[in-house]
Structures are given as structure tokens and as C-alpha cells.
Design a protein around this nucleic acid. Sequence first.
RNA 1: AGCGGGGUGGGGUAGCCAGGUGAACCCGCUGGGCUCAUAACCCAGAGAUCGGUUGUUCAAAUCAACUCCCCGCUACCA
Length: 566
Amino acid sequence: MPNFGKVLVTSAWPYINVIPHLGNLVGSVLSADVVARYYRLIGDEVLMVSGSDEHGTPIEVEAMKQGVTPKELTDRNHARVAELFRKWGASFDNYTRTESPVHRDFVQETLMKIYKNGYIFSKETQMLYCEHDQRFLPDRFVEGKCPYCGGERARGDQCDLCGRLLEPSFLLEPYCVICGNKPTVKTTKHWYIDLSRFANPLIQYLSENKQLPANAKNFSLNWIKEGLKPRAVTRDVDWGIPAPFPGAEGKTIYVWVEAVMGYVSATIEYCKRIGEPEKWKEFWFDKAAKTLYFVGKDNIPFHTIILPALLLASGEDYNLPWNVSATEFLQFKGEKASKSQRIGIWIDEALELFPADYWRFFLMATRPESKDSNFSWDVFLEKVNADLNDTLGNFIHRTLTFINSKFNGEIPQPKLTAEDEAVLQAVKEKVETAAQEFEEAKLQSAANTLISIGRIGNQYLNEKEPWKLVKTDREKAATVLYVTAQVVKAITLVSAPFMPATAEQLWQTLNLDGSVHEGRWKEALKPLEAGHKIARPKPLFQKIDADEKQLDEMLAAVREKKAKSA
RNA sequence: AGCGGGGUGGGGUAGCCAGGUGAACCCGCUGGGCUCAUAACCCAGAGAUCGGUUGUUCAAAUCAACUCCCCGCUACCA
């Protein structure tokens, strides 16, 4: 369990044209939060930052639909999303937004540095333009008939029906998705970063990075091998950060370029706020500091290529990503989440149904680490009812109630035998395994390890049968309950990153000082002293008594209520 | 189409990079035990030849080739 000292934990910035769904949350904010909480527990200095990505065409269009300004839309959505993340237990030190002045200034300054370093050039191109809306249209904002399969509503970049890649000019009967009129072609000028200049340093960085998981590493190296092309850093969009380059009036910065720079600006903003304006450099330049990024698989190149290239191009010796943990996707009952078709569960709805800790544990236990995973109520019920409630919750409850009813609520005095020591040793090994899994971002496995500690406790209780011993050999019974109390304590710590509220409740029930979240990991194996008084336990979890159909109905009811209040 | 990831008992996953101890774990199922505990817990058992084909090897879930299927990316969605 090495201590790194400084750890910057970040998650992909959610694009807040809509409220995120569970699939958006699992690999980014939630994974980041679990890992950040772990590092805080082992006593590292952790900064967890992210923010709302709020610029760009889709936000402008969504605002137009709602009849508000983009700023009004993102003010509202940012406030809602920030509040929802808080309710989910996300322990951000700074959850900011791309409209933050600190962010805007940082992006403009850094891009000017890159410009002055000679990595940015401008070039004229032809783009689709809608005369009616007076705006340039990204490829996806033009639809028409597919020239290959004849399917309706093929997008300018791809036909969803036949899967073929398209150019907007291929579309038959093209129309603007906003107003329906036929787009025209117009010449415009954009500024590009010449990524190819960084091919060699990127290859070296990626090859030497030991933490980077295979999916991210292979994908990224392949991208580079195929040849890095210049990437436009400007857009013809009003809603964004004004491009700082000479002659670029009216252009704004491409959202992905500014969003990844947000990791730095959010750190700066936080350090300013706490009155230590230079401190951010400890996270970004001190080579002992680690930066961890939690993203979905669709996001890999932005974090393994674009961000490192931007950091290198600034010429300032920034720390490049230490690890980019990329998850696959969470599907819903075998289908991709879709807002329009209401496939999926949104993060506000989930909390209306069950406590955040249930969802947090469930999502981490089914975290799509090697392949897409599939949400189903059956699996949700399995994780909550069998793992959390039956195995873990019931073990804790039977231990603590026994101590209360038979030992006056005091940790009994033990006389440990080799068998008892072996159980404590097994738990110690599980705690160490969990620590390693947190550090390797194998969170699904860490969730299983947590439950397996409960299993060890249950086995031990069943073998020893202290409910019999208490009548025949009180000292032996005392020893058994002493041991299981230590197992409960270990569970408290290991569960803390996953279920912060539940772990805290347990910490209080064990009548321990302060909060479990104050760097207590090393105390996981420090025994509760004989004679230590504990409180009367309350069940930590409740079994969900509903089948799939009823759960679907409950979700539908939540949606109906939400629709009415909106 | 190209590139990356994946396809493992009824369901959910690990193992594959560094080939070799009975293919591991959870749920479910069957049988048994226990009664401290939230009808929870514990033990035992049945069930997969690892998408398909071919090859390399003394030995393949693991390596190679081909093939089918799912997901992502392909640089102007974010």
C-alpha cells in the first residue's frame, strides 16, 4: 500500500445538454469517487476535480428548443447536476464548469502559448451552413436519405441503418435537423493543432506507461501508428470560449480541447479558492504526483492523445496522465441507453427509488471493465439483496446484536487460538487485496472482495456456533465475538469508498472517534479493544421486496411524477 | 470497410498479456446442517470442453490464421 503523496483524481466532464444516466456515471464520476475516497483513506493528499462541459452546438440547439439562452440552460443544468452528484456522494473538491472565468482564462492563455510555440496553423475549409438558422452545421446536424441503403434520417457522418460512413455531401435530400431547410456550403477558416509533431513523444509516453490498461494503450498506439492528423481547435459556434488567435474573431474553442484543459483549470480554481494560488503546480508539475482519469471507452483518445499533446505543446513539462481508466458501456436490458426512447435509468430517477449507496455498490460490482455490461433489475436485486443485505449486512447485524445481547454491548475479552488468528489473517489478506484492487482501478473485483470478507465472517460464526458456546464455554464465545467484531471493523473501512454513508453509520455504531473518512485505512486492522462499548445496531440495508415488473412500474411512476413537476 | 475491445455452466463475471496443478467466483438449482441474525447463514452436489473452424505444441480458454456475432472509434457529436 504505497503512499503517493499527491493524487489528482478526475472524471470526464459530463456534457450537460441533458441529465446523465447511470451509464454516464459509472465509469466516470462514480469510479473516480471510489478511487479518490480510497486514496484519502490511506492518507494521500487527494484532489478530485471535474466540471460541466457546457459549450458547443448541441447545447445551443437544446437551448433554442427550450426557448432559453444557452447560458440559462447550462446554469440550470449545472446546478441540477452538481446537486445530484452531491446526493450521489461524489466527493469533489471542485466540480466546476467550462463557463468559469478561471477556466476561460487558462484555456486562452495556454492555447496562445501553444500558438506561439508554432504548433497551431489556420486553414480554410468548406462547411455546411444553414442560411435559415444562420449557423454552420456539424456533420451530425445534417440528415437525409442514405445513398447506399436509401434509409431515411441518415446523418451526415453515418447511416445508422446500414452503418456506412458518409460525408454530408453524399446525402440525398439533405436537410438541417434544426429547421429542416436545405443546407448550403460555405467557406470558413479554422485553427488546427498539428498533432503529428507529437507522435514520437506520445508513443514513448504511452509505451512506457505501466498503469494504462490494455484497451486504452492499444487503441491509442494504433491511432498514432495510422498517422496523426491536424485537429481543428476552433469552431464556428457562438456559445463557447472565444479563440484567442490573431484573426480568429468570432470563432470559439472546440469543446473537447477546452474540456480536457479543464482538469488543469479546475485544479487552479480550487487552489485559488483555498488561498494557495501556487499549490496547483504541486499536482501538475511535481513528478511524484499522480493524475488519474476516469472515462468511458468512447473518450480514450481525448485523454491519451489530445490532452497529452496539448500539455506537451505548451512546452511546460506538465505531468501526463498517470492512468486513464476506461470503462466499456453499461447497456440497459440489452440496448444502448437512449434519451429519446427512454432506455436507461437517469441519475435523478435512481435516487428516487433507492439510496445512493445501493446504486453505488451495484454499479461498481457490475462495472463494465472488460466488456459492455448489461443493466437488469435481476442483477440489481442479486447485488443488493444477496450481497449487501444477506451476506454483508446480516453478518454485521448478527455480530453486533450478539455482542449487545450477550456481552452487554462491550467487545469481549478474547483468548485467541490458532484458528481464530487464521481468520484474522484471512481478513487481513482480503484488506490488502482490496487495497491493491483500488490502486489498479479493479473496482468490480474490489466490490467482490468486500463481500467475501462478510463471507469469511459468516463461515466462522457458523463453525464456532457462539450461540451454543455462550451457554457452555463463555470464554470461547467471547473470543469468537471478539474476532467477528474485528471483521466488522475491517468491513467498515473497505466499504467506505463504495458506500460512504453506510460506512459512516457503521463507524458510529462501532462508537469510534470522528469519521471513517478521515484517513483511517490503516486502522482497518487495528483491533477494537476488549471492553470498548458499541452502540445498538440498526440494519444497514433493507431487502428489496419487488420483482422486475414491479420495479419497472416504480420507475415509470417516478418518471410520471417528474414529468408532471417539470 | 479499417482499427481497438469482447463472445467462458441457466444468469452475471474472473482467468488469456508471461500455454501445463481438478476451468475459479457470485446468483440460481438440488440435498443436508444451523437457529445468534433482516426466512438470514453454513456445508455438499449437479451443471460449461471456454462463439466456430484450422494450425503450432508433449500440452491451448490462453499462442497463430481464418470466420461469425456484439460494442466503440475512424479525426466537424460530445
